[in-house]
């Protein structure tokens, strides 16, 4: 059983004693009425009651009985300040929409993970930067086109498409369409489930889309040599700068 705080126990004792004294016929002065409601407020309440009566009389023309004001009391019978009317189960009157979920504190559980991840990637890029130097070729020269000239790696998929389609299709229409459809993905896919087994079509389509670009980028990066002709990197060497 839960522990009852001391001050509540004390208050209950007092109330019990007072109730006992009353029942024995010795009227105990009700402290609550005397102390808690100041005289001037009681007077004001009475005055307001009178005014209401006169107003009602003027308007309706009939005599209205002045309302019987009950003597204000600060406590109920036997000294209780509240009475238990009924017990209602929470589900019957409250519509609980939010189910309680299992939650953990961000500190330390999430922040530690984030900190370690940040540390790891900092360490990785630091070590990589110490050992591998960024390329700096000779000064830009408009009269000497390197062979092959390649775009940055993330655009090599597009450059690969250039070998197959008209530049407007390869450079604008296909990437534009891909980006547009990507933005619209949540509005096209109205399936509310996020379970992989319920969205096989969406997952297949996206996988094909991602693979499409990944394969094109890899061909453009590693399998294209002088003249942007098809080569094998293990036979003809690497023509790729990051």
């Amino acid at each position: 059983m839960a522990e009852i705080p001391e001050h509540l126990l004390k208050r209950a004792e007092e109330a019990k004693a007072r109730a006992g004294a009353e029942s024995e016929g010795e009227p105990v002065p009700n402290e609550a009425t005397e102390t808690k409601v100041p005289e001037e407020l009681l007077d004001r309440t009475k005055a307001a009651g009178d005014r209401d009566t006169t107003l009602a009389t003027k308007e309706s023309g009939t005599q209205v009985e002045p309302p019987q004001l009950p003597a204000p009391t600060g406590s109920g019978p036997a000294g209780h300040t509240q009475r238990l009317l009924t017990v209602v189960k929470s589900g019957s009157i409250q519509d609980v929409k939010l189910k309680p979920v299992d939650k953990v504190h961000v500190w330390p559980h999430l922040l530690v993970v984030e900190f370690v991840a940040a540390l790891a990637i900092t360490a990785f890029s630091t070590v990589f930067s110490i050992f591998v130097n960024a390329p700096l070729l000779e000064l830009a020269n408009f009269n000497q086109t390197p062979n092959p000239s390649k775009a940055p790696w993330y655009f090599l998929g597009l450059q690969e498409l250039l070998t197959m389609f008209h530049p407007m299709v390869a450079g604008v229409t296909i990437p534009g369409l891909a980006l547009f459809l990507l933005i619209l993905a949540p509005y096209i896919d109205r399936n509310p489930s996020n379970k992989p087994e319920d969205r096989k079509f969406a997952i297949s389509l996206m996988t094909i889309h991602l693979m499409f670009w990944a394969v094109l980028v890899m061909i453009g990066s590693f399998f294209r040599g002088p003249g942007f002709n098809f080569i094998f990197p293990w036979a003809d060497g690497l023509f790729f700068e990051l």
């Binding site: 390329p135 070729l137 830009a140 408009f142 086109t145 390197p146 000239s149 775009a151 450059q159």
Partner: peptide
């Protein structure tokens, strides 16, 4: 450099 100029030319 040459890498920058021609990559951007292509793009």
């Amino acid at each position: 450099d040459q890498l920058a100029l021609w990559a951007v030319t292509v793009g």
